[in-house]
Amino acid sequence: MSRPALEVADIFRDRGPAWRKAHAGHVSLEQLKVMSAIERCRTAELGGHVARCEDCAYTTIAYNSCRNRHCPKCQGAAAKQWLADREAELLPVPYYHVVFTLPAAIADIAYQNKAVLYDLLFKVSAETMLTIAADPKHLGARIGITSVLHTWGSALTHHPHVHMIVPGGGISPDGQRWVSCRPGFFLPVRVLSRLFRRLFLRLFLEKLVAAHQANRLSFFGDHIHLADAQSFAAYLAPLRKAQWVVYAKRPFGGPEAVLAYLSRYTHRVAIANGRLITSDQRGVTFKWKDYRIEGRNRYKQMTLATFEFIRRFLIHVLPKGLHRIRHYGLFAKGSRADNIARTRELLAIAKQEGQPTA
């Protein structure tokens, strides 16, 4: 694969030193490490190896990758291995795609408290899906979930949301049969939205307040006043009426479509090198997608001052140790293999008996 004409690494190497100097004391250690890794990726600084053809003696040097999960060049190999593992786990049923998005007011403080609030988004959204699926009025089964955290919008803005990939059915509570959802319809979105909001009121705010009382939250800039307990309570009060966004997309075309989607989403970073157009005195110009517009007109170009581009890229650096791909329910790590094996058995039985599995 040929190297893109412009890479994030080029921008960091060119303007990174000046940006770091201008923002000294206001950049986290993790962000500095990401910048350094991307700048050094596939250069002589990381070493490399020499490959030589035995027949024609052609020799080439391949430099080592940084393997940082935020590097636009280093996700291919990791994604390939991850996908190979998931391919072996795919079930012969339809798969559905659900997206949970944080409202802006929570997203604002999430940026300042990534580890706490991203974790809450994962847990509350997963509990929503598991709870409503277990309800006999809707599905009455234990389901499996693969969740992927994205923190960006197409213009590199802070937009935390979780993408969920869910099989169209689950195992009955007694473990004796596979329960299929209705064709083309997984769970009612209106019910999801109401339940997500109710869990948010009971769970999310509860845990958020507990984190505040335990001094696990940090605030700065325009939100520094939220360090005060009364100010924080007043800030949260209007959120009890906030509209949580739950978006259910059409079901995937089949297992191959699930893999194709996952290959694009699981190891994606804030911006791919292929979206960069130019970097000059005006700033960095890149392609972005305006989701408010339908059709071809949604594809546009944006130019940001170089320092602003760097800032936007770095706000999506995740805290050390925070996993951005998680599995719940039937796919939870400890019991995933056994649950998948049992699911295949139940699907085979349903097929033999002529029962629908989709």
Rank of each mutant, 00 (worst) to 15 (best):
A270N: 01
S263H: 04
H23F: 12
K123R: 15
S147A: 15
L314V: 13
Q281W: 06
S335E: 11
R342K: 09
Q75I: 01
H161S: 02
L347G: 02
A133S: 12
R177A: 11
H138G: 00
L205I: 13
R250W: 09
E45I: 13
G25Q: 15
V284Q: 03
T343M: 08
I143H: 03
P188I: 11
R15E: 15
G169V: 00
Q355R: 14
V209K: 06
G295E: 11
C71M: 07
H225Q: 13
V93I: 15
S231I: 02
R250G: 05
K207P: 00
I171Q: 00
E206P: 00
A242G: 10
A248L: 10
W244V: 06
D228F: 03
R69Y: 07
L83M: 07
L102M: 12
E45L: 14
G221C: 10
I11V: 15
A105F: 05
G329D: 00
I109E: 03
V269M: 02
T278S: 10
V179G: 00
Y261I: 00
L347I: 14
D290H: 04
A210C: 11
C181I: 06
L262V: 01
K241V: 08
K300L: 10
V162A: 13
A242N: 00
T343C: 08
G144T: 08
G144D: 02
R296D: 09
A210G: 14
S147H: 03
K333G: 04
K123H: 15
C74F: 09
V8H: 03
H70R: 13
E308Y: 06
H150E: 04
L201A: 06
A126C: 13
S36R: 15
S231G: 02
T306E: 04
V269L: 04
A44L: 13
A272K: 03
T343K: 03
A9D: 09
A37I: 05
F185W: 12
T128N: 12
A229N: 13
L236V: 08
N68S: 10
T59R: 08
K33Q: 14
H225R: 13
S2G: 09
S231Q: 12
G221R: 13
L46Q: 05
D290S: 05
A44Y: 10
S147E: 04
F196H: 09
A229Q: 15
D135A: 08
A134N: 14
T157D: 12
E54L: 14
I224W: 11
M164Y: 09
A332H: 01
I310N: 02
F186I: 10
R282A: 15
T101Y: 13
G253M: 06
A257H: 13
K241T: 10
V284T: 05
V34R: 06
R275P: 07
G329H: 01
P4A: 12
R311F: 09
R312L: 11
L32T: 07
G144W: 01
A18F: 10
R312D: 05
L314S: 03
V50F: 05
G76F: 12
G168K: 12
I224R: 15
V124M: 11
F220K: 12
Y265F: 07
V284Y: 01
C56W: 14
Y58R: 12
K80N: 07
P103Y: 08
G169P: 00
I132R: 00
S263A: 08
L117T: 02
Q243C: 14
R344A: 02
A44D: 11
H150K: 04
L276V: 05
